[in-house]
């Protein structure tokens, strides 16, 4: 081979060029690639999320009406670029950006626990330990983000009750968020939630997929 080349290359030259080329190539490509792929590395390699893994207060159980669902808006803090916690603390006049999710809550099959009617609408400060367990078992805490392509679903009142309808492509769910019709491949996603003794519903920015699958992070919104 070598004698066919106008400018013969020895094995040493070849090796030298190869090593040098690899080093220079790496020096030129790794910094810009890591620079723009940073978030992908953070999420997939370091397992970070833009929303802190904390509990956030949604609303009081007494606010969930017995006959229809109720949407609570939860503003999750968003740790992205200029909204990172460190930038907020040390930066100039930076405002924290939030991810405002509408969270649909309803009583399973519209059967609220007996004590809810007694609470009334006055957001009674506390409920007992038994009532917490009772309320937790009777609640649906659903993501408004449609299981199809993520548009926000809304409650549509009909003569025989109602349904969750997605405005984008017509996905339909029942009061418990179970799939009724349209393009979605499954029912509405359920937030990981808990009811505490102050009577409030607390959610994490993650979905309870149920069974042995545990939880998953909401994607996109």
């Amino acid at each position: 081979m070598a004698e066919l080349q106008k400018d013969p290359m020895t094995r040493g030259d070849f090796l030298g060029f190869g090593v040098l080329g690899t080093i220079v190539g790496a020096l030129l490509t790794i910094p810009p690639a890591a620079f723009i792929l940073g978030p992908v590395i953070d999420v997939n390699v370091r397992g970070e999320s833009d929303v802190p893994d904390d509990w956030f207060r949604a609303g009081h159980v007494s606010e969930v009406p017995p006959d229809e669902p109720k949407a609570f808006v939860v503003a999750f803090p968003l740790n992205q670029v200029y909204s990172e916690r460190q930038v907020i603390e040390e930066g100039v006049d930076t405002q924290e950006q939030t991810l405002r999710n509408a969270i649909w809550t309803s009583w399973k099959d519209l059967k609220p626990p007996g004590f809810i009617a007694e609470l009334g609408q006055n957001r009674t400060p506390g409920i007992s330990r038994e009532q917490v367990i009772e309320a937790q078992g009777a609640l649906n805490v659903l993501s408004s983000s449609c299981a199809h392509l993520g548009c926000p679903v809304r409650w549509l009142v009909k003569e025989d009750g109602g349904e969750f309808l997605c405005p984008c492509h017509g996905g339909i769910y029942d009061i418990n968020g179970a799939y009724v019709g349209g393009p979605p491949p499954r029912g509405m996603y359920r937030y990981t939630y808990e009811v505490r003794e102050d009577g409030y519903i607390y959610v994490k920015h993650e979905f309870d997929v149920g069974g042995d699958k545990g939880s998953q992070k909401p994607f996109v919104i």
């Binding site: 723009i36 792929l37 978030p39 992908v40 953070d42 999420v43 997939n44 999320s49 833009d50 929303v51 968003l78 992205q80 670029v81 200029y82 909204s83 950006q97 991810l99 920015h205 992070k217 909401p218 994607f219 996109v220 919104i221």
Partner: peptide, 17 residues
């Protein structure tokens, strides 16, 4: 998923997006 995370600049839509 990776492409969308690259576009969004994280795992949710936000300022980075």
């Amino acid at each position: 998923a990776y492409t969308i995370q690259f576009l969004m600049g994280g795992d949710t839509i936000g300022p980075a997006t």
